[in-house]
Design a protein around this nucleic acid. Sequence first.
DNA 1: CTTCTGCAGAAGAGCGTGTTACGACACGC
Length: 591
Amino acid sequence: MATRYAAGMSANEQIGARFERLADLLEITGANPFRINALRRSARAIDASPLDLAGMILHDRASIIALAGMGEGTANRIEEIVRTGTMADLDTLSKQIPAGVPPLLDVPGLGPKKVRVLWQTAGIEDAATLKAKLLDGTVGALPGFGAKTVANILESLAFMERGIGRFCADVGWNAAQRFLALLRGAKEVERAEFAGSLRRGRDTVGDIDLLVSSSHPEQVCELFCADREIEKVLVRGDTKCSVRLKNGLQVDLRVLTGDHFGAAYLYFTGSKEHNVLLRERAQRRGMTLNEYGLYPDDGEGAPQTRGVQAIASATEESIYAALELPFIPAHLREEIGADPLGAPAPTLISMDSIRCELHAHTTASDGELSIEDLVLAAKARGFHTIAITDHSRSSGQANGLSIERLREHIAAIREVSSMISGIRILAGSEVDILADGSLDYPDDLLSELDIVVASPHTALRQDPETATKRLLRAVEHPAVDILGHPTGRMVRGRPGMDPDIAAIAQCAGRRGVALEINAHPSRLDLRDTHVRIALAAGAMIAINCDVHSEEHFDNLHFGVATARRGALTTDRCVNALDADALSGWLARPRG
DNA sequence: CTTCTGCAGAAGAGCGTGTTACGACACGC
């Protein structure tokens, strides 16, 4: 919540943030929950939309209303923001509700009802006052607040003071792999998987959702809760546990029997919005869907407890089929933009389609591997090509190569190439795109290279217009093949630039330049929404690990997940080309 | 606020767990 209106937000995100804030305020006033939910849906649809909604609202209102979850009310509000720069009822509510009250919704254990009681009956208007009145006994005397609740809220506040929010995906990935190894090693466990936003491949995770099938849930919960990385067990039931690790990450475990696994996997993978859409669809077809299965809707409660035979439950595939839907890959279960449920899912790129790595560093600049070790590592991964792309001269902090050193480096790469067979080695460079869009080496040197990845590393706070011009100039340079980590953002770090991705992608498409998804979990740049925009504008996409050490090859799945979320298909990815097609691409005519 | 059924008005996902008060409610997913 603190990051709302932060620099680096796109125009859509700034509009979406207003909707989200209005929803928070209305929730505290006790407005119709369906209305609040609808506002949040609009906020997410606006955030994720590849369309320039502010630009469209005045002349193409109908296209906005046609999007899923967007109606007249949303269009009116967007128009109001565009015309007046503000939203009248948001301003009115902001005056009525003190600024410190909505953030209290973020305190685990507090929902809108409790926040409202705290504010209206105890005059608590911010986190600091809340803490004081928890400690002096004021809160404990309020209805609905017993000793346990007071202790839990204090605990939550202390946790929040540690400043931990969402985590980069790799933190979640590593924790999940460790727990899965533990669980899969237990004889009571038939199957264990991670679900949630980690399975959907988001660039950050708020917590980890683990799912186990077993006939002995209590023993599984006991094993799980005894793990030594756990700081605190938050919830401990017979089939459901929730813990917080020492690094602050929350991990939720749910145990079910195998015949329900598909329904549970679907439910815990989410997104929440996707679940709601599926359940509404089930209702319309006279069925009811919960985490145990898809059942005929006979109007009674909880079908799984009454021995009702499920229509589908063991696999996700069977449930989608029974709902007359194509199977929707986890990466597309976000209910975003123009992706209404029921549209046929594209055949997405997958890990085994990736045939080469086109962005890697050696000890010549800031990598850990020699040319030879890098090449052998790439060969061991089964790649037909590895591109060696050390930093250029301006990247002093990364030991970028001078013109002379690059010439020597090219010769050294050619020599290794003559000694190692079975993989093609490209002599390249990750050349800096300077602030004005020029490249960091002279043209004649760039033309000697087999491949050029051009990337921005500095001046990442440029305004969108300057950034767009800068990147366009790089894409138009005849030597450039790939635009590396185009915005320079760092996940949970810096916002990076906010250029007009559509314009850049359109130019890249014309010139045969690929836009990179940098697979490092701290970058994931392009991000998922950018990939959609770039594909619509006609660009090819690269998925590169930006290898600095052997383990970096293992980051590929993060990049592929981002690509899948952006609906990238194999035919639009340069890393999926076979060796000849890749050569053909690199030999394309340059204007 | 949006969507769907029928054009104005209703309906809107479903469950486990914990707290607080002992059936009901809030919360979080």
